[in-house]
């Protein structure tokens, strides 16, 4: 798999070289990424995996890259879903859910890999303008609460996501393999959501944003897992009955096998 990817990237680099004369005149670098696969299949043995994304800089300035002043940030963003955040407060000595805030479009997962510490790459203005990093995501609050409440719940949302391993940040997760070839390693958590994920790569030179590119990645259940899921949703009554039947059979066989009287 890795070999074919490398081949693909070199092919891309070659194809881009034809347009490099014009690009060189403008002195503008460009960035390309190739995923090691365009779909990840989740089978019964899945327990999280590393996703490797290869990429290439085209028309890189040799001087700048020798000084290591090109920086790359790669983001893998899961499909957006509506989410409700609830807050517990103390009522009559009991901790109960009293406050809640809904958000319309929260990415189910968000993994960031970068060449260096975020503050060494560029300034916060750039991060928020490019919406890079979990705290800069444009998340729409649903019900109109005060800005302070929204801020509090947004922070709580990110903390929860980080704690569950769905929002990750890996400094040093992007490495330059040569002057213009780089590799990003992103962690797919064991509970990674299925659906279409979007990989985006951002190129910075001396802290200045140059260009971004993106690619799609489909994460799907495969084989028996996918069929079970489909049956559970499409034929839910039959599925429920089968689950009951399975339990009865298991109970009966268990009685025969483990009989102790």
């Amino acid at each position: 798999m890795r070999k074919t990817t490398l081949a693909l990237v070199f092919f891309l680099a070659g194809a881009l070289a034809s347009g490099s004369v014009r690009a060189q005149q403008e002195g503008q670098e460009s960035i390309e990424i190739g995923l090691s696969t365009d779909s990840v299949s989740i089978t019964s043995g899945f327990s999280g995996t590393n996703l490797t994304i290869f990429g290439a800089l085209d028309n890189a300035d040799p001087l700048v890259s020798r000084q290591g002043r090109y920086d790359v940030i790669v983001v893998l963003e899961g499909p957006a879903r509506p989410v409700v955040v609830r807050k517990k407060t103390r009522v009559l000595g009991m901790w109960i859910n009293t406050d809640s805030q809904e958000f319309a479009n929260v990415p189910t997962s968000y993994a960031v890999a970068m060449t260096r510490m975020p503050q060494d790459i560029t300034n916060t203005g750039n991060y928020s303008r490019l919406a890079v990093g979990a705290e800069n995501l444009h998340i729409r609050p649903q019900n109109g609460e005060s800005p302070a409440t929204i801020e509090e719940f947004t922070k709580a949302l990110f903390d929860e996501k980080k704690a569950s391993g769905l929002y990750t940040e890996r400094v040093g997760g992007v490495q330059f393999l040569s002057r213009n070839l780089f590799r990003a390693t992103l962690m797919l958590a064991p509970n990674v959501p299925v659906g279409t994920h979007r990989a985006r790569a951002f190129l910075f030179r001396n802290g200045t944003f140059i260009r971004e590119t993106s690619a799609a990645l489909t994460i799907q259940k495969a084989g028996a897992e996918q069929r079970i899921y489909e049956v559970a949703h499409d034929y839910s009554f039959a599925y429920g009955s089968a689950a009951v039947f399975l339990a009865i059979i298991t109970g009966w066989i268990g009685r025969l096998v483990f009989r102790r009287d």
Partner: peptide, 11 residues
């Protein structure tokens, strides 16, 4: 007092 007073759930 719970260690985490916030909880998230899909809507």
């Amino acid at each position: 007092r719970p260690s985490d007073i916030y909880s998230i759930a899909p809507l």
